[in-house]
């Protein structure tokens, strides 16, 4: 018995000591040690770092007169979007802004990808305005693409809406570029036609032109 106690006592003491030591695990709030921080962090300003050159302390703003670098193909469209964020600009865009790209199945496929990344959580997979955020009661009043209010919306107004936002929809200009906006607009038009039961592309074009004509008429009035 005495021998057993003699064994149990020290062994358990050592085990307790080990448990205590190993409980000092690394702190998730601290990144840990580095061998040579100088080799890790260069002196140049990084994209999301701080810099003393901008008033707000961010290194992100380019210096004055920096020329934006765009793809040569899209450069002409990047110049400026001439329509202001007003009711008049919206109507004008509806008449004058047109898709410069030819529409192909691949183009629509790209549009579907953009749609499923940037639009689907509010507008829903079929464009019925019943996305996951609406289903979960986070958002309300998202119109259906084939509902009465916007089923005749011309593509220019869609572009204007993506560019500036409309009502409770914010501007998505910072997230999707010029080409991607047209890809997604063509896909939205496809969803709308599916919802309305229109299959051929020519009839879609027709609704656009009639809507555009109506818009022109309302402006000239």
């Amino acid at each position: 018995m005495k021998k057993l106690i003699q064994i149990v006592f020290p062994v358990s003491a050592v085990l307790c000591g080990l448990a205590l030591l190993s409980s000092c695990k690394s702190d998730p709030l601290s990144p840990g040690l580095e061998y040579m921080p100088d080799m890790y962090r260069g002196p140049a300003y990084e994209t999301y770092g701080e810099s003393p050159f901008n008033e707000n302390g961010s290194a992100m703003k380019p210096v004055a007169r920096t020329i934006p670098r765009f793809n040569a193909e899209t450069l002409p469209f990047h110049e400026t979007y001439p329509f202001p964020n007003t009711n008049e600009g919206y109507e004008l865009a509806g008449v004058q802004v047109k898709n410069p790209y030819p529409v192909s199945p691949e183009f629509l496929e790209k549009g579907k990808k953009i749609y499923n990344n940037f639009c689907v959580h509010c507008h829903g997979e079929k464009g019925d305005g019943n996305g996951i955020l609406v289903q979960r009661d986070k958002y309300a009043g998202v119109p259906s693409y084939y509902g009465a209010s916007i089923k005749d919306l011309p593509e220019g107004k869609m572009y204007h809406t993506i560019y500036y936002g409309k009502n409770m929809m914010g501007s998505h200009a910072a997230q999707i570029n010029f080409a991607e906006r047209w890809e997604v607009i063509e896909y939205v038009k496809k969803l709308r036609n599916d919802g309305l039961g229109i299959s051929s592309d020519s009839s879609a074009a027709k609704t656009d032109t009639t809507a555009a004509a109506a818009a022109t008429a309302s402006i000239t009035k």
Binding site: S26, S30, P31, G32
Partner: peptide, 11 residues
């Protein structure tokens, strides 16, 4: 573990 940030979860 030096220089490895695995598990780093800052507030």
């Amino acid at each position: 573990g030096i220089g490895v940030y695995q598990g780093y979860a800052p507030e």
